[in-house]
């Protein structure tokens, strides 16, 4: 399969079924998903819990292999070193080593990205400054608040100057001020030429920053397009019914 040069992420008929110890299928997490993320856009992957967002992200990151279909990052297999060199990832929770200081954490990820010690030092200082953590740089991150830990994780994701930044629920658990800061940062990064793929429960987040969104439910694509274009069909869809056995309104989805 030849990837179009402007497509940073490309998923073709991707499916993933989880199995138990005896290899019996338990959950079909993703089912025949086609998706493309173009260079320079902010793409939102939206959907309720269990819709397959995290599984999709893990397949894009090369952490799990799809059961069917193909995933390409920059036209490369997602678990290749060349693809990972161009990737930054902020998980839903920060998952930091509690015994490292903020500076050591960012510097560790800089080293993993292959930066030499001088560049690593410079970039770590810049990112500490940018995320407002310069004063707490020498403190162990185990003692940080959730917001501060999130900023360290974001700085760590950015330290390799990725071309594609994957943000999993970037505003999860943040107060309104921090949420706005993240949104502003996303807009700034995109202006600088970065491509961003983010997941969210909240349509409001996507509306503020995303160029295009894809709505997932039960592992299937429900809708895809620009926010303005799919807004009404989205609303109609959610007002009608999403899922089996329960109503799911846009009002619920929005908040």
């Amino acid at each position: 399969m030849n990837s179009a040069p402007d497509n940073v992420v490309e998923l073709n008929s991707v499916a993933k079924t989880f199995r138990d110890f005896w290899m019996r299928p338990t959950v079909k997490a993703v089912d025949g998903l086609d998706l493309t993320v173009a260079r320079g856009e902010v793409f939102g992957l939206l959907g309720p819990n269990g819709s397959g967002k995290s599984t999709t992200i893990k397949m894009i990151l090369g952490l799990i292999k799809p059961g069917a279909g193909t995933v390409r990052l920059f036209g490369l297999p997602p678990d290749s070193i060349a693809a990972r060199r161009r990737l930054g990832y902020l998980p839903e929770l920060s998952y930091l080593h509690p015994f490292l200081t903020a500076r050591e954490t960012i510097s560790y990820y800089a080293g993993l990205c292959g930066l030499d010690s001088r560049t690593s030092k410079e970039r770590t200082s810049q990112l500490l400054e940018m995320t407002g953590l310069a004063d707490a740089a020498g403190r162990a991150v185990g003692g940080f608040s959730k917001g501060m830990a999130r900023r360290v994780a974001l700085a760590s994701a950015l330290v390799g100057r990725p071309e594609l930044l994957i943000l999993d629920e970037p505003t999860s658990g943040l107060d309104p001020v921090s949420t706005n800061e993240v949104k502003t940062l996303v807009k700034t990064l995109v202006k600088g030429g970065m491509t961003i793929l983010m997941t969210s429960h909240l349509l409001a987040d996507a509306e503020d920053v995303c160029n295009r969104v894809c709505i997932l439910n039960h592992g299937r694509k429900v809708a895809e397009g620009k926010i303005g274009e799919i807004g009404s069909s989205l609303q109609d869809f959610f007002l009608a019914k999403v899922g089996e056995g329960r109503d799911f309104t846009v009002a619920e989805f929005l908040r």
Binding site: K58, L61, G62, L63, I81, A82, R84, R85, L87, Y89, P91, L93, Y95, L96, H97, Y109, L112, C113, G114, S156, G160
Partner: peptide, 14 residues
């Protein structure tokens, strides 16, 4: 188990 490993695994290190 603490999900820190995946953060290292997505970096360009074998």
């Amino acid at each position: 188990e603490a999900k820190r490993l995946q953060l290292t695994m997505v970096r360009p290190a074998r």
